[in-house]
Amino acid sequence: MTINEIQNDIIEEFGAFEDWMDKYAYLIEIGNDLEGYQEEWRLNQNLIEGCQSRVWLHAELVDGKIIYKADSDAIIVKGIVALLVRALTNQTPDDILANDLYFVEKVGLKEHLSPTRSNGLVAMIKQMRLYAMAFKAKMG
């Protein structure tokens, strides 16, 4: 699936929720379900420290595509982390760099990406793009 196909799926899923409580209950659910972040990756170099919550991000290049794994100590942040990983993992650096992640605004989660929230999410997206730039350079 392309990044935009995944984003459109996410938008459709969120379209089913009538009120904010259901939406956040879903975020909590996918936050709780996010797994696969290995303890050996829980290093300071992978830590994105916000004032409010912390995010860990690990990335590796497999067959020309980037595999992202991430985690957070706050469940709502972790739910959003799970959506970002779902949209961008297993994609090429070029596709990742060309995408603007429009789903975040469409599903009403943009407030979490305000720098004043200081929850690590803005820095996480920046870091995901930096990995894409670095892997792209490495691939030549």
């Binding site: 956040y24 409010q52 919550s53 706050a74 469940i75 942040v77 200081s118």
Partner: peptide
């Protein structure tokens, strides 16, 4: 429960608290 999660939900209910360290 992480303070950010609690604060975020309370904010949605119109209750203003401060969270963090």
């Amino acid at each position: 429960i992480h303070p950010y999660d609690m604060g975020m939900m309370l904010d949605k209910m119109g209750i203003a608290v401060r969270t963090g360290h």
